[in-house]
Simulated scan of single mutants.
Amino acid sequence: MKFRLTFAILLLVFSHIFSQTKLFESIKNENSDSLKIIGMYYNWDQNKTYEKYNFYITDKKTIDSLINNTYYNGLTENISEQNNFSIIVTKNNQILDRWSVSPKFENINIKGKSHKFDISTLARLAEKFPFKYNWYKQEFKNRAEFEKFYSNKIKDKNTLFIYKPDFIYEGSFEIQFPKNETFLHPKAIDEYLRPKIEKIAKDEKFSIGYVLTEFNMKNRDQYTMTVSGSKNIFNKLKETQGKKGNWTPTKLEAQIFEKTEF
């Protein structure tokens, strides 16, 4: 009986050990001289719920130690909270990898699944490497203007990272279709529109989508589709079945994150 109990305890211990996985496996081969590991509350959380866990690490020895000794554990209930916490790894102020942590539920999101995570790790790092940050949005007239700004700003000592504007599409426009036997649902409209746009676009990227806007939700006798792509598509698409709206250029807006002094 004693042997069975001891064996069961050892099995439990080994099961716990082998369920551990290194968090920073994706960056283990990176030169840690230019890496930064950042922990920060989500910028949209106006209450700064988890600011107390913020940390900012550039020390090579500490980063090497974290890469070798930071683990997450087995799968847990797939649950999260709105105001999570981020662990971010950057190289030359560009994001290499990031993970979402829920201090409330003591888990970390790995490829869409929740895993058990020791939240005390955040507290220990925040105590030793505390920091505060600031973020803001900035709009640009064109890609060239942004690239000039970016090339200088990304080298700034206080820059954490920059979310670039979306350069995929020049802009978008809406087309309103009546709900009838021909256009029973958005899929039918997509099948009608796509071949027409493909002839115009050729190799240009575009997308067709139906968004549940307030207008679409309140007006169920129609479907307003959003087409994103080039101004060329907007100019050349002649539509008789639907009512084409105005052209809206894509807002070239970047988000800049900076370290601030206490």
Rank of each mutant, 00 (worst) to 15 (best):
D221V: 01
N216L: 06
L35V: 10
L160Y: 05
L11C: 10
K179Y: 02
P130G: 09
T226Y: 07
K157V: 11
Q176T: 15
Y50N: 15
L252P: 01
T213H: 03
L5E: 15
R4D: 13
S19I: 06
L96G: 00
I27L: 09
Y210T: 04
G229K: 02
K28A: 14
D156H: 07
E239A: 09
M225Q: 03
Y72I: 04
L122Q: 06
N216I: 10
N152H: 08
S86K: 12
K202L: 12
S172A: 04
W135E: 08
T240R: 15
N158F: 12
T21C: 05
G209H: 09
I17W: 13
E25Y: 12
W44V: 11
K36C: 08
F140M: 09
F215V: 10
S114Q: 14
K104H: 14
F262L: 14
F14M: 11
T76K: 08
S34L: 10
K52S: 14
D118Y: 11
S32P: 00
F105C: 02
D97A: 07
K155T: 00
Q255A: 10
Y169T: 05
S102V: 01
F117E: 09
P186N: 00
K199P: 06
I110D: 04
Q222V: 10
E30H: 13
S86T: 02
S26V: 11
Q94I: 11
V227A: 02
S114H: 12
T250K: 06
I67T: 07
E81K: 01
P178R: 13
I168K: 15
I57T: 09
Q94A: 05
F177R: 05
F105V: 06
N73K: 04
M225G: 03
I110M: 09
N84R: 02
Q94D: 03
Q222A: 09
Y56K: 04
P186Q: 05
S19W: 08
L10H: 06
E174Q: 14
Y210V: 03
T248S: 15
E139W: 05
N69H: 09
K187N: 13
A144L: 14
I87G: 01
G229I: 05
R98Y: 12
F105K: 12
N232E: 07
F183Y: 14
I119C: 08
T250S: 13
F105A: 07
F146W: 00
F129M: 06
I162L: 03
A8C: 13
I110P: 04
P249C: 03
N158T: 11
L193Q: 02
E127G: 15
F206Q: 08
S86L: 07
M225D: 02
L193A: 00
E239H: 11
T121S: 10
K244T: 11
I79W: 05
K137V: 11
F24N: 05
E198K: 14
H185A: 14
S151N: 13
Y53I: 11
D59P: 13
E25A: 13
L122I: 05
D59W: 12
I189P: 07
K116R: 13
K187F: 10
